[in-house]
Each structure stands twice: as C-alpha cells, then as structure tokens.
C-alpha cells in the first residue's frame, strides 16, 4: 500500500526514478514554422543558492508547459534537488527551501534526466532567462556532461515587445504580474513563479495572435527585433 502511494507520488511529481535512457534524450528544437497554436513551450524557473552562476547551485526546478496557447496543469515539473552538501544560509529566507528539504530532495542526475525528457527539446521560456539558462546549462554539464544548446526566450523581453507603451513601473516579474492583476500563490517558489511567468506568456501569445504572429519563428524574430531596438536606443 505504502509502496503504491510512493509510486503514485513519484509519478505525480514527475520523477520517474531510474527509467531514463541518457543516450537517447530528445533533441532540442529550433524555432521554425511550427504554429504557435500547435507547439509546446516550456516555461521554467529555478531557485538557486545565490546569484553567481560560477559558484552558486540550483536547488529547485519548477516548470509548466504551454500547449496550443493553454497551460495544462497536468503537464508540469516541480522538484527540489537533493543537495545536502550545499550552503543555503544566505538564500533560505528567499526560497524557503531548508536543509531538511534538500536532504529529502530528488537525486540530481535523475531529476535532470527526467527534466530533459519532460522538456522534449521544446523551446524554454523564463523571466530573465539568461540567469536560468546559465545555471541550467552549467548544472547539466557538470552532472550529466550534457551540452546541447536549447532555444531560450526571455519573457522579460516578450512582454515589452508586445506591450511597448505599457507603464508597469518596472521591468520585474512582479511589475508585470501586478499590471495584469495576477495572483502569484507563493513568490520565489520555482513552480509558482514559473506559473506566473507562463500566465504572462499567455497574455503575450494572445497579443501575438491578434498582431498576426503565427509561428514560433515569428515570435522569435519579434523578440530579436525588440532586442535590437533596445540596443540601438542604448547608443
């Protein structure tokens, strides 16, 4: 009975232990003519021991999937990694993940393999994605020797690209969440932040559709165009 419950929990939490095939992981997809109404996007958020990718570590991964412009709560990822060796004194107050949780967390290798399988090579979106990208790439490389480049998009760019004249009072996730009246259930919880980011993404995708942006490539281009525009303004 207990064993069944345990399995059920593992399944629910997306941690299929030991059933991965490291040699046969899905290949990352590049932004092409996939229709936004068809494709799957990963919206991800990490909690780390600090802000410095060269010395801090990932301790929790939260992600939700958007398919066809809809968030499916059955298709999500919410794991704390088992890293009892890490010093989390500085950040425990932010993410609320204590030493005990880290002891009981998921085996890192297992979790990362499952994450790669679950993401299925689909494009990854995150708020201030450069941060998450650096941490995730570093962790994947260190733990699995995995170096394949994934497509990343920054929701912090996506929002102003589609809502250029919106006065949000700032560029943070909180500013946009407040602007659209989103309720973030537990800020600085990876999965909760990922969901809020995903909800913002839905708003952007809705706007994209009304502006005639139909494909993943179109979205990607729009983002780069916005980036270039921003950079030009800087000079």
């Amino acid at each position: 009975m207990l064993e069944q419950i345990k399995q059920w929990i593992e399944h629910r939490r997306g941690g299929k232990i030991g059933s991965h095939d490291p040699g046969n992981l899905p290949n990352p997809k590049t932004p092409g003519e996939q229709l936004l109404t068809d494709c799957r996007l990963i919206v991800l958020d990490l909690e780390t021991t600090g802000l410095n990718p060269s010395k801090d570590e990932v301790i929790a991964i939260g992600a939700v999937a958007i398919r066809g412009g809809i968030i499916h709560l059955g298709d999500q990822f919410d794991l704390i990694l088992r890293r009892p060796e890490l010093d989390i004194r500085e950040t425990v107050l932010i993410h609320g993940i204590g030493p005990e949780a880290l002891t009981q967390g998921h085996e890192i290798e297992d979790a990362l393999l499952y994450l790669l399988e679950w993401m299925n090579g689909d494009p990854i979106l995150a708020y201030h994605s450069a941060f998450d990208q650096k941490f995730l790439e570093k962790t994947l490389k260190a733990q699995l020797g995995y170096t394949q480049p994934h497509t990343w998009m920054d929701v912090a760019d996506l929002m102003p690209a589609f809502f250029p004249n919106t006065k949000t009072g700032g560029k943070g996730l909180d500013n946009w969440a407040d602007y659209f009246g989103l309720e973030v259930s537990e800020r600085h919880h990876a999965a909760s932040d990922a969901l809020a980011t995903a909800e913002l993404t839905l708003v952007a995708l809705n706007k994209a559709r009304s502006e005639g942006v139909k494909t993943l490539k179109g979205l990607y281009d729009k983002l780069h165009y916005h980036r270039r525009l921003q950079n030009m303004h800087r000079f």
């Binding site: 009975m1 207990l2 419950i5 929990i9 629910r12 939490r13 939260g62 939700v64 709560l73 999500q76 919410d78 309720e183 259930s185 537990e186 919880h189 999965a191 909760s192 990922a194 969901l195």
Partner: peptide, 20 residues
Amino acid sequence: MASAHQENDRPQNIRAIMTF
C-alpha cells in the same frame, strides 16, 4: 497519514489552485 503525506507532496501550483 497517507493523505497528510499527499497534501504536502502535491505540487505547489496544484495546491495553489485548490486553495483558490
């Protein structure tokens, strides 16, 4: 016991939707 266990082990976003 088992149910208490389940409640804590439900993903954050599921718990949040339930609370809502």
